[in-house]
């Protein structure tokens, strides 16, 4: 199994595309990697593309929330893009509406959101 998700650094932003079925350690590793990379690069925004993710459970949801809060502390915005309808319906039913997280329909709209202000 893969043990790291690659992080792309593009001008002021960090880009992550999650394409594998993440096991818990991998999600926590991503959380660590992203926070250290934000502080190392001084990135102003983080975009996490989850359009190929077929499931988000409470653990992954919590990790996404953590990344969002931690980046805010480091003065960077995080936007989660491309969540599938079935995944969104399931998350809401599970009782997780991730209130602190910014979302966008796709990468282009997510970049637009990060570039604002």
């Amino acid at each position: 199994m893969q043990d790291r998700i690659p992080i792309l650094h593009m001008s002021n932003f960090l880009l992550v595309t999650i394409q594998v079925d993440m096991h818990d350690r991998l999600a926590l590793q991503l959380q660590d990697d992203l926070t250290s990379k934000i502080s190392a690069t001084g990135a102003r925004g983080v975009l996490i593309d989850i359009s190929s993710l077929e499931m988000v459970d409470s653990f992954i949801g919590r990790v996404l929330g953590n990344i969002s809060s931690m980046s805010r502390v480091l003065d960077a915005k995080t936007v989660v893009v491309g969540m599938q309808p079935a995944v969104a319906i399931t998350l809401v039913e599970l009782g997780l509406s991730l209130p602190g997280i910014l979302t966008a329909l796709n990468v282009a709209k997510g970049m637009e959101l990060l570039s604002r202000d």
Binding site: A88, T103, L105, G110
Partner: peptide, 10 residues
């Protein structure tokens, strides 16, 4: 719930 799900999708 639909409103919440739509928000999660952006």
């Amino acid at each position: 719930k639909t409103v919440a799900a739509a928000r999660l999708m952006g």
